[in-house]
Simulated scan of single mutants.
Amino acid sequence: MTDNLPNHFTLPDTGLLRLQGADAETFAQSQFANDVAALAPGQWQWSCWLNAKGRVLDVFALARLAEGDLLLILPDGGAQALGQALQRFVFRRKVRLALDLRPVSGHFGAATGAAGNQLAISDDEVIELDWGSSTLPRTLRIGAGADLAADDPAACRSWQQADLRLGLPRLTAQQRETWTAQQLGLDRLQGYSVRKGCYPGQEIVARTHFLGKAKRATVLLHGVAPDITAGSAVLAGEREIGQLACVAPPYALAVLPLERDEQTLLVAGSAVQAQPLVEGLLR
């Protein structure tokens, strides 16, 4: 998948949002689904922002750079829109939300300083994250040097395909507020907490977790045609059993019933194959 790709390439769709101030952690803890208080400075986690019905609005990495200094890394962009939406809930808290305009780049290969959920931050504030696994190593880089990376659409497509293979959802605007955190498989990434206390959608997440009512889950499909888009139906025989949540042909993540017949799966009349997700992106 990475043959003939540049060693270092831009990720122009990735957005960055900075939360700074004495109440940054408290504010993030009240809004985002994961346990921000569990992060030490220099660590990061997967997280998401949900609506009141427990549907996913955004999936992102949340890094704690220092006390009172958080960085959201949004693979699907939308940092400005998310910042504006969050601003409505700041009230009197001492937290400042601002776009971070530093360049972001990707590299297929192991990180040199970062590992797991540990960041590598250089003296000139270049940030490196381990964005992959032992079987699919990748590095995400923020800051100086990333602006020298190549612009390469093919590399970006391979990066997004790798996201899906590792079980990281990539949501278009049309797919936001459609799926629950469990349906998108964010439990595999430890992307939410069921014990930390209140946040938007927490009741739905906790009820599904503790009562075992999740009936659908994320399945990686291969063989999706280039013209297929998210939201397309998945059929078993002639019966629709689910939809594609995100697509990076020939891969897609579909939300399908946990219990289903072993029939041929079809998308737009063509057969697709279910494949195991690549392990190792849990943080």
Rank of each mutant, 00 (worst) to 15 (best):
G167H: 01
Q29R: 14
A144M: 10
A66V: 00
F91C: 05
G116H: 07
L65V: 01
P200I: 00
W131S: 15
L5Y: 07
V234N: 06
Q80W: 02
S133Y: 14
D100K: 10
L70W: 12
A38F: 07
L253H: 10
G109Y: 06
S232N: 12
N7G: 15
R176N: 11
D151N: 15
Q31S: 01
A162I: 00
E203L: 12
A33V: 00
C246H: 04
T180A: 05
L184S: 11
V90A: 09
D35R: 13
D100G: 07
N117T: 08
L99Y: 05
T180F: 04
E177F: 06
T229S: 11
W46C: 02
L166N: 01
V247D: 09
A66E: 11
R283S: 08
V234C: 04
D58G: 00
L86H: 02
P153Y: 03
G109Q: 13
A217G: 15
S47K: 02
A38C: 06
W44L: 13
V205K: 03
R195I: 06
A66P: 01
L129R: 10
G185M: 04
F89S: 08
Q29W: 02
E25I: 07
G167P: 07
Q175G: 06
A162D: 05
I228H: 06
A230P: 00
I228Y: 01
Q161S: 03
P137K: 06
A37V: 07
Q84A: 13
P41D: 12
A155E: 09
A111W: 08
A38H: 11
K215E: 11
L211Q: 15
Q80D: 14
G280W: 08
L16F: 11
T10M: 14
L277I: 02
S105L: 12
T208I: 13
A115S: 15
A52Y: 08
T264S: 13
Q190E: 10
A230D: 03
V247H: 05
L235C: 05
N117E: 08
D163M: 09
P137C: 11
V36T: 15
P12K: 05
D35S: 14
A268Q: 12
P153C: 09
E259A: 14
T180E: 06
R96E: 13
K53C: 01
R141T: 14
L164P: 07
E128V: 10
G109H: 13
G42E: 03
L244S: 04
S270L: 11
A120M: 08
G167Q: 10
L97Q: 06
Y251F: 15
K215L: 02
V278A: 15
K94M: 03
